[in-house]
Amino acid sequence: MLALSGTPLSLDEVNTSSKTTTSTMSTPAKLYGKDVSEYDEIDVESLLSQLSAEEISILAKEVDPDDSLLPPDQRCSYECDKTPTGPLNRKKLIQHINKQALETPDQPEMKPYVPGTVRGKKWIPPENPKQKEQDEQIAIDLGDEFEEALNTASQDEIIDLAAILGFHSMMNQDQYHASLLDKGQVGLGWGGITKASQPKVYPPEEPNRTDVEESIKRVQDDDSKLIELNWNNINNVSDEKLEQLFQALPDNTHLEVLSLANTGLTDKTAFKLAEALEKSATLRVINLETNKISAVGIVRLVKSLLVQRVIEEFRASNQRSSVLGNKTEMEITKLVEANPTLLRLGLHLEYNDARHRIATHLQRNIDRTNYRPLSATVCCS
């Protein structure tokens, strides 16, 4: 039974009334035969004083325990009827809880665990639906003239046509390049289409067998035949050997190309090389790629090129610090712009401004080097 406004309704009446159209209530809502507004003036404390202890306990269970207006000890619906044994000792309470947890035996499993057995229903991934391949035949009308030409064309002519149209996947590389260079067809026919040609086997590159001791002595003796010194990829060069080489560079008058790529150069040896470049008047090309020089060492080396102004090519990319930074790149840019003889610079620059300014200046140096004024001839009659 449901009651609204004091009038009891049966379940059938409620079902029939729910099927009818609802109308807005014009009369105020009532609770137990009284308007809801009348309960605002009731004194709650006087009503609670009239309740018994049992009724208050029942009412307390209906109260929301998360009500922030209630004290913390009244927000829990659990009630303990035991008398307190003494003041709360948190340390002893935690020790007692841990002791009970260790002494309480585990609940026995319904089925013992057996390694390798599967309990319950084993999950099987669903099978992917197989995609049915449908052969679609597209009819293309090329016209009688083109169809007759293709039907009477030989295999070599069709392969040449594929090369002209850019159908690279219809032939291997040998056929494609032969068609481009007009060298005729390379055998194979249709059996070679879409098959890769065998790659050419090249022997591995031999290690650098330059004698370090001998080359240092030749530099110290100012050998006229030693124009280029290549120490690339010699990893066992010590700092002492490098310093000996750099000390001999200022007195050498024939060495023009010095390659020290992947030789383990650090800032210590790079500063020694910078001092040597400030005194050497014959070196033209310096290659220091793939070493361990920092951004400070790169700036020091580029700055050393301004003393003699004879270096035409300087390469120092792929160092320890892959990114030089904006400040370092701008400093290198100013040093390069002050160098009138540098023609090629091998450095990885991140910012477009530095790349553009350096490229413009190097092109200006190249144009100035290649420019030769015409000799004027004066004729007198």
Rank of each mutant, 00 (worst) to 15 (best):
T210F: 01
L142H: 01
A338H: 01
I97R: 08
L70E: 03
D182C: 11
N291I: 04
K200G: 05
E214R: 10
S179K: 02
G191R: 14
E256S: 10
N232D: 15
A3E: 13
E13D: 06
K195N: 08
A53N: 14
T253C: 04
A162W: 02
N262D: 08
I56S: 09
R209E: 07
L283E: 00
P72S: 11
Q198V: 12
K241E: 15
K111G: 00
G143Y: 00
H348I: 10
I193K: 03
L301T: 01
A248R: 05
T27M: 03
H177I: 09
T266N: 13
I234G: 02
W190L: 08
P129R: 12
L181N: 08
E278Q: 13
K200R: 10
F146T: 01
N339T: 09
L349M: 13
T152P: 00
V212C: 07
L260Q: 02
S52R: 14
L142N: 01
C379D: 12
A53G: 11
N370D: 14
L249S: 01
Q319L: 08
T194E: 15
S321N: 15
K61L: 12
P28C: 07
V44Y: 12
S224P: 03
A276H: 00
S321Y: 06
S304A: 15
N252K: 05
K327Q: 15
L305T: 10
D43M: 09
D66Q: 14
L362W: 04
A60N: 13
P207F: 06
C380Q: 14
N235V: 05
R344N: 12
T22S: 06
A376F: 10
N352I: 10
S26L: 15
I158Q: 00
E240V: 14
V114F: 02
H356L: 11
S179Q: 03
D221N: 14
N352D: 15
S304K: 02
P115A: 13
K217E: 14
L288T: 02
W123R: 10
S77G: 12
I298F: 01
E329M: 10
P203S: 11
A29R: 11
E62A: 13
L245M: 09
L374F: 13
D174L: 12
S18F: 02
G192E: 07
Q319Y: 03
E214M: 08
V310C: 13
G120L: 05
S179Y: 00
K268I: 11
E38L: 07
T210S: 04
K183M: 10
N98I: 08
A276Q: 00
S57F: 10
K82D: 12
L273K: 01
V285I: 12
E289T: 09
F167N: 05
M110G: 02
L245W: 05
E103I: 04
E55W: 09
D182I: 10
K334D: 15
V14A: 14
V307P: 00
D144S: 12
L180Y: 06
